[in-house]
């Protein structure tokens, strides 16, 4: 499991300070919800975690090592939209990550390797309840199914850290609760450290073991550009264990 340390992190665009002086340590296996008003830099923070943007000052350490300044397979991601590839079926979407890893030049697997990748991908699809949709294209799936597919696609690479950028924001409440349950189960099984940006406070507390709020402390208009958002609340959610305990006893134990 993976510890993430954020040290004195700043992000400045031109003369606009977006984030300033962010400091915290995420315990291994924790599920961190990032909340805050629109434009407070939550997504900017997530993009820095991804390596899509680099910090203006400060650094992010993963298990004590500064993170790579471009996206890599140790950090999986699910966005609100456009997370899956429209030209691939659900199964192909999940297999793609394994094919990238197993075949540098053609990015396509053959024979025994292909069968193994296919089996692993089908299992992943089953984990998120999409077995029936393996042969469908994303445009044929509902919003909730597309997000479950995006989760399966990210998890097939076994990332140490999973980054979620408002992944459930566009879903209906009923569907959202269903995807929450799947997310929590996978988090316990895979023992990842998760960062989730969300607008929804109840979602933040339901899923997270810790809720971190970003906001601007100085709000006078003439100060708006010079001062960025920082951590204003940092709450451990009661009753959640870190690292996460398995929700149910393992299947073998139950069978005996």
């Amino acid at each position: 499991m993976t510890q993430v340390t954020v040290e004195n992190l700043w992000k400045v665009y031109g003369d606009q300070t977006v984030l300033e002086n962010i400091n915290f340590t995420a315990e291994p296996g924790s599920f961190i919800s990032l909340v805050g008003p629109s434009g407070c830099g939550k997504s900017t923070f997530l993009r820095m975690m991804l390596g899509d943007e680099s910090p203006s000052r400060g650094r992010i350490l993963i298990d004590g090592v500064e993170l790579e300044d471009e996206p890599s397979p140790d950090r999986g991601v699910v966005f609100q939209k456009y997370s899956v590839f429209p030209h691939l079926t659900a199964l192909q979407n999940v297999m793609l990550g394994l094919e990238f890893g197993g075949s540098p030049f053609l990015a396509r697997l053959r024979g025994k390797k292909r069968r193994a990748a296919r089996a692993a991908s089908l299992e992943m699809l089953q984990n998120v309840g999409l077995s029936q949709a393996a042969g469908k294209y994303p445009s044929e799936l509902s919003g909730g199914m597309q997000q479950r597919l995006a989760i399966a696609q990210a998890l097939v690479k076994k990332p140490k850290i999973l980054l979620l950028d408002e992944p459930f924001g566009a879903l209906d409440p009923g569907i959202r609760a269903e995807v929450h349950d799947i997310m929590l189960r996978l988090w316990r099984e895979e023992r990842m450290t998760i960062f989730m940006v969300t607008h929804d406070l109840s979602e933040a507390f339901k899923l997270g073991t810790r809720v971190i709020a970003f906001d601007r402390v100085r709000t006078r208009p003439e100060e708006a550009k010079a001062y960025g958002a920082t951590v204003t609340f940092d709450l451990k959610v009661d009753g959640k264990s870190v690292p996460p305990a398995p929700a149910e006893p393992p299947l073998k134990a139950a069978a005996q």
Partner: peptide
């Protein structure tokens, strides 16, 4: 969408892939 390109990189893809 930029998200697709980022996603591919988090799946371990090189520029060529």
């Amino acid at each position: 969408p930029h998200e697709e390109i980022i996603k591919a990189q988090t799946l371990g893809a090189s520029t060529w892939q």
